[in-house]
Amino acid sequence: MLWIILLAAILVIALYGISLYNALVRLKHNVSKAWSNIDVLLKQRHDELPKLVEVCRQYMGFESDALERVIQARGRVQSARSSGDIPSLGAAEGALRMGLASLFAVAEAYPDLKADNGFQHLRTRISTLENEIADRREFYNETVNQKNIQIEQFPDILIARLFGFKPATMLSFSTEETKDPDLTALFS
């Protein structure tokens, strides 16, 4: 008789184990989804940047270092994106943001460029995309953090080890991003 009650208790424990496994699978997919959501915006911005560069070139010519930096950083972001290399993407993204900040600062010295409708539209569009990327990066990191904590805590760790769930990598932009552009150097 006791064994039937034990069987019922084992069934409940098995259900608990299944729910832990399901939570880990969902977390894994949530990390992928959060990454895809960033990737979509990176792709959109990637497509907008050449238009911005083209508009700026019409007014600035080819002499601006800021333009060159943006073009190079865009290429680095694209290559890190396509290879799925998150640490490299973080560094490239930081450089691109720095380049864009410099570009917009330099644009202040060109009143005709500032007044250009196309430039204004692209600037607004890219700034909006940047804000959305920042928000989604925060959400991606939150999801990654949740997954990494969950696979290391008991009793999830038992299921995670049994089924080979691996920690995910956070996306952190390089510290360059947080520095303000050196406006004196830019206009010298």
């Binding site: 608990y16 729910s19 939570a23 880990l24 949530n30």
Partner: peptide
């Protein structure tokens, strides 16, 4: 248990 699994797997968005 399934509800708990869904809640635990979701990160808070804005």
């Amino acid at each position: 248990l399934d509800n708990i699994a869904w809640i635990r797997a979701a990160a808070t968005a804005r």
